[in-house]
Amino acid sequence: MPAQKPDRSAADDDATAPGDGTTPGETSASELVGEDLALGYPTTEDPVVECEKVLVPAGEVTALVGPNGSGKSTLLKALADQLAPESGEVLLDGEAVHRLDDDELARRLGLLSQEHESPASTTVEDLAYHGRYPHRGFFESLSEADHHAVDRAIDLAGVDHLRDTELGTLSGGQKQLAWIAMVLAQDTDVLLLDEPTTYLDLHHQLRVMEVVRTLNREAGITVGVVLHDIGQAARFADNLVAMKDGELYDWGPPTEVVTEDLLADVFRVDASVDTERDGGPHVAPHRALDE
């Protein structure tokens, strides 16, 4: 495992302007931090993820990468307050997420998990309006702000032409974009996505990641995303968190993290890495290595 790196502090992050174009030190984006985490499930005797510190920097896109079973989705669930740590805590702008009530957390942090279902007869527009629930009282009618947020989310996700279409008639890629429209309508400062491109064709994979990148660049939203494709992660993310066997193996900018040694040690792949290409490191896999 690589040598221990110094922690990145909020002051370090201010040295780089965020994606919304604000000047250094003036970002209002939110930061998500996990400290001294031990994560497990009722069916596991020992923690399946342990990490001293994990940082999702304000106003940046951070991708969690690693092989199956490395703990990426477990860590994301803890960051989203969907899994209570056995020890340690998750902080959103310095506040422990488990101390926030459900509506307040939902106004500040959006999660698109792998498991999401809705009646097949629900339209894309109706689904997007579900994302407005944290902003409305139980008996409150829809406001102009709600309509504006939904229209913006549908437009940004590129599904305006599907607005009145029922989910049951959509392709897998179209359905995923509809769910992304819903979480965008939630209008949060932090967005977490768990493997949003899995099972999608290449066109829809790129479309999903372009939507995420546009949202980050135009609105300064802090994004944490679990991805299987390290080449895709290197292209779209500002930071990578590489995981192996429930621990953080390496973290930092893609140009520093994506190396031939990492691909061999973490992913068990013999590959070449070209760091001279535009758009981040380019990974060319050659063969699978023995376990």
Rank of each mutant, 00 (worst) to 15 (best):
N68K: 10
V65D: 03
A84T: 09
D93M: 00
Y41P: 04
G66T: 05
D102S: 11
G59E: 12
P85S: 11
D81W: 08
A38S: 15
G25L: 10
T44E: 07
A29W: 05
T43V: 06
G59L: 10
Y41T: 04
A38K: 03
T27Q: 12
P85I: 14
L83P: 00
P57G: 07
S30L: 13
D46L: 12
H98A: 11
E52G: 08
G21R: 13
L83M: 06
L79I: 05
A38G: 03
G71V: 02
K72A: 09
P57C: 07
V65E: 05
N68F: 08
L39V: 05
D81A: 15
V54R: 02
T22R: 11
A96Q: 05
E35Q: 13
A38V: 01
H98R: 13
T62F: 10
E60P: 00
P47Q: 01
G94V: 04
L64R: 12
A80I: 08
V49C: 02
P85G: 08
E95W: 11
K53C: 14
K53H: 13
A58T: 08
G66E: 08
V33E: 12
V48L: 01
G88R: 04
A78C: 08
A96L: 09
L37G: 02
G25M: 06
T27C: 02
E26M: 12
H98Y: 00
A78G: 12
D36A: 10
E86F: 07
E52A: 14
E95G: 07
D36F: 02
V65R: 05
D46Q: 14
E89Y: 12
G66N: 06
V65P: 10
E95I: 11
P85V: 12
E35C: 05
L91P: 02
V48K: 01
V90C: 11
G59M: 15
D46N: 13
L39R: 06
A63P: 00
K72Q: 03
L55F: 12
E104C: 10
N68Y: 09
T43Q: 13
L32Q: 02
L91R: 15
L64H: 11
L91H: 13
L76C: 09
E26H: 11
P24M: 08
L32W: 06
P24H: 10
A96S: 15
G66L: 07
T23K: 07
A63W: 13
S87H: 05
L100W: 05
K77W: 09
T22Q: 14
